[in-house]
C-alpha cells in the first residue's frame, strides 16, 4: 500500500514538473522567437523559416535601429516621461498620504478629503470627456498630457496611507514634543522610514509609465512626440491593416514587403528593459502586491 502510493507520488511529481515546464515554455518561447527573427537575415525571416534559432545571423536590424530617428526620439520621449512622471507621481502619493493618515480627531477634515479622493475610484468621466478636458487645459501634444491626468494614483496613495498608519506613534510624538511641525515630521521622520515603500510603489509606477501607449495615440498629434510604446503600437497597427487585404496570396505578398526583422527588433527593444531588470526586482514587485493585498 505504502509502496504503491509512493510510486504514484513519484509519477505525479514528474508529470507535474513536466506540465509546469511546458507552461513556462509557453511564456518564454514567444520572446525567444522574437529575438531569433530580429537576429536573422531578412530573407529567412520573411520566408517564415525562423523558429527559435536565428538563420543567417546578423545584427543588421539593430545596426539600422540605432540610426533610426523615429525609434531614437521616441526612446527619448519615453525616458523623459518615466523620470518626470515617476517623480511627480511619487511626490503626490507621499505628500497626499501623510495628512490622510492622521486620525480624524487630529485632522477633522480628513473624512471629507478621503471621500473626495475615494469617489474617483468608482466614478470616471470616460474616454471622451477626459480627452476634452485634457484638450481644454492645453496639454495636447505636450508631454504633460501623459503625466498630469494620472498624476495622483489613488490606489497607490491608499497603499502609502496604510503604510504610514503602521509607523509607531511614539516616533511622531517624541518629535512633536521636541517642537517639530508637520513639514519637519514629513521630511525628517516619515520620508526616511518609508523609503522601501516608496521604492516598491515607484517600481510599479516606472513600469506603468514605460508601458502606457494609448494615451500617446490619444493626446499626441505628431509622431515626434510619441513615447516608445506608442511608436511600437503604430508599427503593429500598420501590420494589422494588412490582414484586411482580400486573398491569402495578396496577404503573403504584403507580408513580404514589410521589414520583419526591423519590426521584431523594435518590439524586442521595447520589452528589453523589463526583461533585463524584472528577474532581479521580482521579489519587490511581489512584496508590493502582497502589502497592498488585492490591488484590483
Amino acid at each position: 500500500m505504502f509502496y504503491k502510493q509512493s510510486i504514484n507520488r513519484k509519477l505525479f511529481v514528474w508529470v507535474n514538473a513536466a506540465a509546469l515546464t511546458f507552461i513556462t515554455l509557453i511564456g518564454i518561447v514567444p520572446f525567444i522567437h522574437l529575438l531569433a527573427v530580429s537576429l536573422s537575415s531578412n530573407t529567412a525571416a520573411m520566408a517564415g523559416e525562423v523558429k527559435l534559432i536565428p538563420i543567417g545571423i546578423t545584427l543588421d536590424a539593430y545596426d539600422y535601429l540605432i540610426h533610426k530617428v523615429e525609434f531614437l526620439r521616441s526612446l527619448v520621449v519615453s525616458l523623459k516621461r518615466v523620470v518626470l512622471g515617476t517623480a511627480i507621481n511619487m511626490f503626490l502619493v507621499f505628500i497626499t498620504a501623510y495628512p490622510l493618515a492622521k486620525s480624524t480627531e487630529q485632522f477633522r477634515a480628513r473624512t471629507a478629503y478621503v471621500w473626495f479622493f475615494a469617489i474617483t475610484i468608482f466614478l470616471g468621466g470616460g474616454l471622451i470627456p477626459t480627452f476634452i478636458i485634457v484638450k481644454e487645459t492645453g496639454l495636447i501634444n505636450s508631454i504633460w498630457a501623459l503625466i498630469l491626468p494620472g498624476a495622483l494614483n489613488v490606489w497607490n496613495m491608499i497603499m502609502m496611507l496604510n503604510f504610514f498608519r503602521g509607523i509607531p506613534k511614539e516616533m511622531e510624538e517624541a518629535a512633536t514634543i521636541d517642537g517639530a511641525g508637520h513639514w519637519v515630521l514629513l521630511w525628517k521622520i516619515y520620508l526616511p522610514v518609508s523609503l522601501p515603500s516608496i521604492a516598491t510603489i515607484g517600481l510599479f509606477t516606472v513600469v506603468g509609465h514605460w508601458n502606457s501607449w494609448f494615451d500617446g495615440i490619444l493626446y499626441m498629434n505628431s509622431p515626434e512626440n510619441y513615447p516608445l510604446q506608442t511608436y511600437l503600437s503604430t508599427l503593429i497597427t500598420a501590420m494589422n491593416a494588412q490582414i484586411q487585404s482580400i486573398s491569402v496570396e495578396q496577404l503573403k505578398a504584403l507580408e513580404n514587403l514589410s521589414e520583419k526583422t526591423l519590426r521584431t527588433a523594435q518590439i524586442f527593444m521595447g520589452a528589453l528593459p523589463i526583461l533585463m531588470v524584472y528577474p532581479f526586482l521580482q521579489k519587490y514587485f511581489i512584496k508590493g502586491m502582497t502589502v497592498g493585498s488585492v490591488k484590483e
Binding site: 503626490l92 505628500i95 501623510y98 474617483t120 476634452i132 478636458i133 498630469l148
Partner: peptide, 23 residues
C-alpha cells in the same frame, strides 16, 4: 500645513477626475 500638502493632489483630481465627471 496638512491642507497645504493636500492642495496639489486636490487640484489635479479636481481638474482631471472631476472635470470629466462633470463633462
Amino acid at each position: 500645513p496638512l491642507h497645504l500638502m493636500l492642495l496639489p493632489g486636490v487640484l489635479v483630481t479636481l481638474i482631471y477626475a472631476y472635470g470629466p465627471i462633470l463633462g
